[in-house]
Design a protein around this nucleic acid. Structure first.
Lengths: 337, 337
DNA sequence: CGCCGTTGATGAAACGATTCAAGTGGGTTC
DNA sequence: GAACCCACTTGAATCGTTTCATCAACGGCG
């Protein structure tokens, strides 16, 4: 169908081996031969066939990145970081979306196996341990992203969500607030669970402080808006003077619902609010939202670095775990007035 | 390295051809043979090698989708629609991000050529006509997405941005406003240009109505916030009583800047505001934003459909162009009070 | 003049799946 | 019992690259 090395070789009057050498080891080919071959390539419009190259090589140069939700700007930045780092070693990032569904996650991972990708960066939907084990058995290195070191046998890069949660709650307590409500979920998601656990630690250390939980079914804007109504009730009943949202999408939804609701709740007057992720919408909210920032691009690039180490390491090598520390970005939603 | 058909065949006591038949044409294989082969596959943990299959087939089952900005939730939805439709024909979507850069766009397209993808869905960064022509020469069908039918020789699916702009402006005029400011840019981007042109049409038809232009350097939240200051001046000078933003990111940034600025501008009292895209953040803004909705998922799924038609069509086939009509979603930001 | 080392080019084997013409065997028919 | 069918199976050829052992040419050297 397309133009192949064979035709380029004929055109340039050399053998196929030489064409391949021009492409991959030009230093071992005489300059005028190189020119002749390149001329033939240009004239014929030859484009190498990756499938053939890959078949011979035994593995692709693609690194798969499977995220929970491409709609979340957080993951877009992680992907950017990964792409940048991958490019350094001639790799390419294959971006896929599991939409938090086990089925889709499994389907994508199957596909990656068939493609013999160079590695998988996985933001696991829940407990993907067996799937991961299977990939590793097949010789495909895996790095877990944005997920604590629950399973220490797999390399991972994450941000310490427990510390993040603790920092957020501590900041709220420092503002003098005592009746905190955590909004987030489902708690089956490790990120939500860890952030909550961290917040609990901080709250437990302060007498008279309480932490209630308002569990949501997803970490989305819509769920945030829905939860807003309940928060307003709690505020009216004097049971809530601060909200810690498991991510910024929730926080934005909450804020909208609370500011426009019948309850006339003010932020940060009635309720201090802290979010998580520091996506750009957080700073652009009407009351800019204090948020826990994660080094998003850095997470992506580090994940690729770990993947390369995994690949190069001998089988029984020690798995590396990178844990970044989050950073609190204080804005108007939590600044005492 | 991995397990291949050959080993499965040996284990099951059949030939490689039979294993292949079990996988691809089970109806032509006896039931007990199928069982035996499947057992061998399970025991050995065999996973087909896509590269080999693809090499033989001459083309991959991946459809590439190259967007301007994965960070924009709009494209996430387009991708979702494309993925859903592609799955119906056993295809897979390869998502890539050009970040509005010609270089990255070119690099990705080169990569797609090497991979012999089944087709490319392209949101062109600017004028990608020659790149597209080249892909088509190589036998790779292309569908332009979210881009008018500037080049009628390439199939395309888009939303009528001129109509969308006109609808938005007409709605503003219907609210009795006459001093409209269009915020968006750069005007080199077709989407921005077309939306402006549509608005101009509507304004021209009404005596005493004016349309000023505030050009931005990108369609981002940050640019919206920056433009907000200027809008407040114009409002103070009595030169602006309505804003039409080229997309919702801008609108959200504008709103935040205007509502919290020193000018104490109210929405929709002082300024009526209309955005574009109807991303979920628009409905969640403090003053929910009236916006022009595009059938996002539908754009993605239709693009894949067109791609399949392109592929099946004879060489000289007529290129199809689908143009969806946008829909105005009215919310508080433009509702007279 | 013959030998050797070096540099560069060659061409066949291999990667793993699919395809398809050819083959095998068992059953049916006359 | 020969001829023929039908339903499966077989196995070699093929896809486009890369790799590597082998080979050719040439210049230098004794």
């Amino acid at each position: 169908m397309g133009v192949s090395v064979k035709e380029v070789a004929k055109r340039a009057g050399v053998s196929v081996g030489t064409v391949s050498n021009v492409l991959n080891r030009p230093e071992s080919v005489r300059a005028d031969t190189i020119d002749r071959v390149n001329a033939a390539i240009a004239e014929l419009g030859y484009v190498p066939n990756d499938a053939a190259r890959q078949l011979r090589a035994g593995q692709s140069t693609q690194i798969a990145l499977l995220v929970l939700d491409i709609g979340n700007p957080f993951f877009a930045d992680v992907a950017r970081g990964a792409e940048r780092q991958a490019a350094l070693t001639g790799h390419t990032v294959l971006l896929a979306n599991s939409d938090d569904s086990h089925e889709r996650e499994a389907a994508h991972l199957d596909q990656f196996e068939r493609q013999r990708v160079a590695g998988v960066l996985l933001v696991p939907s829940d407990d993907a341990a067996d799937r991961v084990a299977r990939l590793r058995e097949r010789g495909i290195p895996v790095v877990l992203v944005d997920r604590g070191t629950a399973d220490s046998s797999v390399a991972s890069v994450a941000v310490d969500d427990v510390v993040g949660g603790k920092t957020a709650a501590q900041h709220i307590l420092d503002q003098g607030r005592r009746r905190i409500v955590f909004v987030g979920g489902p708690l089956a998601i490790a990120q939500a669970r860890d952030r909550l656990a961290g917040a609990q630690e901080a709250v437990d250390a302060v007498d008279g402080a309480s932490l209630d939980i308002l569990e949501t079914t997803s970490l989305s804007l819509e769920q945030g808006m829905a939860a807003g109504a309940r928060i307003q009730e709690l505020v009216a009943e004097g049971k809530c003077d601060a909200v810690f949202a498991a991510n910024d999408l929730l926080a934005i939804g909450l804020q909208q619902s609370m500011l426009t609701g019948a309850g006339r709740v003010t932020i940060p007057g009635d309720v201090v609010m802290v979010g998580y992720d520091d996506i750009s919408f957080a700073a652009a909210a009407v009351v800019p939202i204090t948020s826990v920032r994660q080094p998003r691009e850095r997470i992506g690039s580090t994940a690729v670095e770990l993947l390369m180490k995994e690949r190069d390491a001998a089988d029984g090598a020690v798995r590396e775990h990178v844990l970044f520390q989050p950073e609190l970005v204080v804005r108007a939603s939590s600044t005492a007035q």
